[in-house]
Simulated assay, not measured.
Amino acid sequence: MGLLSEGNPLSWTEIKLVLQQIRTYGLDQLVNVFNKYKDRQKDAFLWGDETELTLVRFDHKNKNVRLLLKSHQLLPILSELNKKIDDEAYRITWHPEACNFAIESVPFQPYGFSSSYFNTVEANMRLRRKQVQRILFEQTDCEYILNITAFPRYGQGQYTYPPIEYGLSYSVEKSLCYSDSLMSPYHPRMKSLLININERRQSKVSINIP
């Protein structure tokens, strides 16, 4: 999802009034970009990757793990840290994710066309985790950053640190498990998107186990 850093998102009621204008702008932009670059040739092939990392907090005494709502605190620190790194090969670009327990990372420089770049991807991903983990360990020894696709205890009991209230009355999308408190304060588009989806559907999104 693109990050909204300027302006304010429109409500669905406001969007409906300018739908055709938005479609026209989008098509005009597509045609203009195509005409501008249709004759370009022999550009270097560049590529990259994006990882979404999950922050967790271990309670070793009670043998419990919770999602750590801390990405909004880490992002400014990581941004300043990478500005001070002279070698661009060791710099990482960090972005906020929709949830405050997740953080997005991409290499500062894209990878090139040579197959030798394949050998650098894993090391770069490891470097990203080390940057965050070093900051976390400076504050406490029970907070970690992980590469996991899903958190097993999501929505079960007190599954975040700090604890939050969750349920229908705490969620703009009327979710039983996804509270507004999980959203990153750096991602204003997310809350508006969820509200607009429900307004457009005239109901909340229903995802059920088959």
Rank of each mutant, 00 (worst) to 15 (best):
M1E: 04
G2C: 11
L3P: 03
S5D: 01
S5C: 05
E6F: 08
E6D: 04
N8C: 11
T13Q: 05
I15G: 01
K16E: 03
L19V: 10
Q21A: 08
I22A: 03
L27H: 03
D28H: 14
Q29V: 06
L30Y: 09
V31W: 12
N32V: 05
F34C: 08
F34K: 13
N35W: 07
R40L: 14
W47A: 11
T51V: 14
T54N: 01
D59Y: 04
N64C: 05
N64D: 15
V65A: 07
L69H: 01
L69G: 05
K70W: 07
H72G: 05
Q73G: 08
P76D: 00
E80V: 04
I85E: 01
D87E: 13
R91V: 02
R91W: 13
T93H: 11
T93V: 13
T93F: 15
H95L: 12
A98H: 12
C99F: 02
C99H: 00
S105V: 15
V106H: 03
F113E: 11
S114D: 09
F118M: 08
T120S: 11
E122H: 14
R128D: 02
R128I: 06
R128Q: 13
K130V: 12
Y144H: 06
F151I: 01
Q158S: 12
P163Q: 13
I164Y: 00
E165R: 00
E165S: 06
G167M: 01
Y170W: 04
S171H: 00
E173H: 03
E173P: 12
K174N: 10
S179L: 02
P188L: 11
M190F: 15
M190K: 10
K191H: 12
K191D: 06
I195C: 14
E199G: 03
R201N: 14
R201L: 15
Q202T: 08
S203Y: 07
P210Q: 03
